[in-house]
């Protein structure tokens, strides 16, 4: 039985193993991913992002539990940072989701970023696909704790939640570009802490100032994830946003944009792999030498490398 067949038959081990393969040896996973593709497209993908320690994992655990009570199955991808020095990682998001560990309707996978800088792991979109094919109704993607500009999640999720907490700065932060722009829903967690009301007010003010198309104004929810306070409202908010996307066709538009990005990324990688293959017999080193000796500039060298594709050595459109 192939891994794909195992996954469609509900085998958890096959599911876990294909995820590992996608992370480690993606080329070998292609045929299984192809076999799973017709079974995907049903899951709703919810992104959770925010600064370290905001309570993303706890919140995901609570949201998942609520959805389970509503009879939905849930996949969770929790990304933590990989060390740039050793390649190792501590993946600790599951600590906050312990009670879900033995629920057969929940599958949790921790991933290291392994060098990716946008807040996600490179294999994330394929892992989403796999969990989707395995029949999960909702897939939560929890990013690493982010700063201001790690926004890959918005290219990955149907709905993006930005989780904030009191004490991170004044209202000037709310008018900066970056992660605050990508929220479909805001969650102000640790709402029992001093200053939580002010964060809510500042976000509302920021939203008042926004001249982005007014079809959807991100709602701002207050939660205390550790005590389950405010969780039901967030689940309703997620459902409300998905419904909004469906009604005006935006869900399909967003997904189509993702397909475009994904296909182009595959094309890019294949071209790169093939060209490097062609140039691997020492030609590349010679070019490097010439660039180092100022006999050739980097643009000319790149065009020479691309010659097998462009034909004329000048680059540009065919």
């Amino acid at each position: 039985m192939t891994l794909a067949e195992g996954i469609l038959a509900g085998d958890q081990r096959a599911l876990a193993r294909l995820i590992t393969m996608v992370e480690n040896r993606p080329q070998e996973a292609i045929s299984d991913l192809q076999a799973l593709y017709p079974h995907t497209g049903k899951a709703l993908v919810v992104g959770i992002t925010g600064p370290p320690g905001a309570g993303k994992s706890t919140l995901v655990g609570r949201l998942a539990k609520k959805l389970r009570q509503l009879g939905k199955t849930v996949g969770i991808i929790a990304v933590d940072p990989t060390s740039p020095f050793t390649g190792g990682a501590i993946l600790g998001d599951r600590i906050r989701m312990q009670e879900l560990a033995t629920d057969p309707g929940v599958f949790i996978r921790s991933m290291g970023t392994r060098g990716s800088l946008g807040g996600l792991a490179k294999a994330t979109h394929n892992v989403i696909r796999i969990l989707d094919a395995a029949g999960k109704d909702y897939i939560f993607v929890e990013t690493v704790g982010v700063g201001q500009s790690e926004v890959d999640i918005v290219k990955t999720a149907d709905t993006t939640l930005v989780v904030l907490v009191p004490g991170l700065g004044d209202d000037i932060q709310t008018i900066k570009a970056g992660i605050l722009e990508i929220a479909d829903i805001f969650v102000v967690n640790k709402a029992d802490r001093q200053g939580a009301d002010r964060v809510v007010a500042e976000l509302e003010m920021m939203l008042d100032l926004s001249n982005r198309e007014a079809a959807w104004r991100p709602p701002v929810y207050s939660t205390i994830a550790t005590t389950n306070k405010g969780i039901d409202a967030v689940v309703e908010g997620i459902e409300g946003h998905i419904q909004h996307l469906r009604q005006n066709g935006q869900l399909e538009v967003r997904r189509r944009e993702r397909y475009r990005t994904e296909i182009m990324a595959i094309v890019e990688e294949e071209i790169k792999a093939r060209l490097l293959d062609l140039w691997s017999a020492g030609g590349l080193e010679q070019l490097l030498e010439k660039v180092a000796a100022r006999e050739k500039d980097p643009f000319a060298a790149a065009r020479e490398i691309l010659q097998p594709i462009t034909g004329n050595g000048k680059g540009g459109t065919p």
Binding site: Q12, R13, G92, I95, A101, T102
Partner: peptide
């Protein structure tokens, strides 16, 4: 890559986690 799950885990939780995390 170390998956750390915290205190007071049942054997069931440990085994399920080990399988999901491969």
């Amino acid at each position: 890559e170390v998956i750390y799950t915290g205190l007071r885990q049942t054997p069931e939780q440990i085994v399920e986690t080990g399988i999901q995390e491969d």
